[in-house]
C-alpha cells in the first residue's frame, strides 16, 4: 500500500499562532486554568501545546485561526468568500450591535473561515468554525460559505474537511437561518453524489442546527475528546423530562458509544489521521517542501 508510505514521517509543521486571537475560555493574562482538572497553565505553553492541558489532556476550545494554524500545512491558504457580509434581514432588534461586538472581539467577519489548503501535503477544502463568534451560529453567510465550499469541492473533486462548532441556527435571521440547514445539506448530498470525500470533525460544542445538518453528513465523522455533541440543549431536555441528565451525556465519548460518530481523535493525532484518511481516498500528495 504505497499510499500509506511516509504519512507518519511527514514533518509536523505548525505555525505559531498570532496573539490577539484570544480564546473565550481563557481569561486575559499570562496564566489560565484548566476547565477539567483545574490545573494552572502558562498560556504561551498552552498555545504551543495545541490548546491541550499539560496534566489531563483537556482540549481547550480553539479559535478558527488557531485551528487552521495547527491543522493545515504552512504553505498557503486561499480563503474563499471573505467578501460575504452579514445583513440584518428581519430588522431583528440588537442584531447589528451583537454582530459588531462579535467582529470586534474575534477580528472575524463571520463565524466560519473557508478556503483551500493542504493537510500533510493533501489538498483539501476546509472550513473552520469559531464558537466565540455568536456561538458560531449559522445564519445566511455561514450557510452560504459552507454551501459554496461543498459546491467547489464537487467541481474540483477535492475532499472537504469541516471543523464544526456551533450552538445552532442564528435565530436573529429567523427562517433564513433554519433554511441554511436545508441548503447546506442539499449541497452536501450533491458532493456525496460526486463521490468526493467529506470528513466532518465535531469540536466542542457541535449542537442543534449544525449537528442536524452538515455536521452529521460526513462520510467520516470524527469527534474531539470531551466535545459536547447533540441536538437539543441540555437545559431543555432536563426541563422536559424533569430528571438530571446522566454523567457524560452528549459528550464525544457518549456519541461514540451510541454509534453516532466514527472515532474520537486526540488533537495531537488529528493531522496524522486526516492525512491517512485523505491518502486512502486517493488523495494525490503535493510535494511537501
Amino acid at each position: 500500500m504505497p499510499a500509506f508510505k511516509g504519512i507518519f514521517q511527514g514533518k509536523q509543521k505548525f505555525v505559531t499562532v498570532k496573539a490577539g486571537a484570544v480564546q473565550e475560555e481563557a481569561p486575559q493574562g499570562l496564566w489560565t486554568k484548566c476547565g477539567k482538572c483545574g490545573g494552572i497553565l502558562y498560556k504561551k505553553e498552552l498555545t504551543e501545546n495545541l490548546g491541550l492541558c499539560n496534566d489531563c489532556g483537556f482540549h481547550f476550545r480553539l479559535s478558527a485561526r488557531e485551528r487552521m494554524a495547527i491543522t493545515l500545512d504552512t504553505d498557503g491558504f486561499d480563503e474563499y468568500d471573505e467578501e460575504l457580509l452579514t445583513v440584518d434581514p428581519l430588522g431583528f432588534p440588537g442584531y447589528d450591535i451583537k454582530m459588531e461586538g462579535a467582529r470586534q472581539t474575534t477580528g472575524l467577519d463571520e463565524a466560519i473561515i473557508t478556503g483551500k489548503g493542504s493537510i500533510d501535503g493533501y489538498p483539501v477544502l476546509a472550513g473552520f468554525m469559531d464558537f466565540s463568534f455568536i456561538g458560531a451560529s449559522m445564519g445566511s453567510v455561514v450557510g452560504e460559505k459552507v454551501t459554496r465550499l461543498f459546491e467547489r469541492a464537487a467541481r474540483q473533486r477535492v475532499p472537504v474537511v469541516m471543523f464544526c462548532a456551533s450552538g445552532g441556527a442564528r435565530m436573529q435571521e429567523g427562517m433564513y437561518s433554519l433554511m441554511q440547514m436545508a441548503k447546506t445539506s442539499a449541497a452536501c448530498a450533491r458532493l456525496s453524489d460526486t463521490r468526493t470525500l467529506y470528513i466532518s470533525v465535531l469540536t466542542n460544542p457541535t449542537t442543534a442546527g449544525v449537528f442536524a445538518s452538515f455536521g452529521s453528513l460526513g462520510d467520516i465523522i470524527i469527534a474531539e475528546p470531551g466535545a459536547l455533541i447533540g441536538f437539543t440543549g441540555q437545559r431543555v431536555i432536563e426541563e422536559t423530562i424533569r430528571q438530571k441528565l446522566p454523567p457524560g451525556f452528549q459528550t464525544a465519548e457518549f456519541a461514540l458509544e451510541h454509534g453516532l460518530v466514527d472515532m474520537i481523535v486526540d488533537r495531537r493525532n488529528m493531522r496524522k489521521i486526516l492525512g491517512l484518511l485523505l491518502a486512502v481516498h486517493g488523495g494525490r500528495r503535493q510535494d511537501v517542501g
Binding site: L217, T232, I241, H258, L260
Partner: peptide
C-alpha cells in the same frame, strides 16, 4: 428533547432526512 432521542441520534436522523 429526550435522553433516548439523543442516544439514537436525533441530529443525525434530521440531517439525513433533509439531505
Amino acid at each position: 428533547p429526550g435522553v433516548e432521542a439523543e442516544e439514537r441520534g436525533q441530529g443525525l436522523a434530521i440531517a439525513c432526512n433533509i439531505a
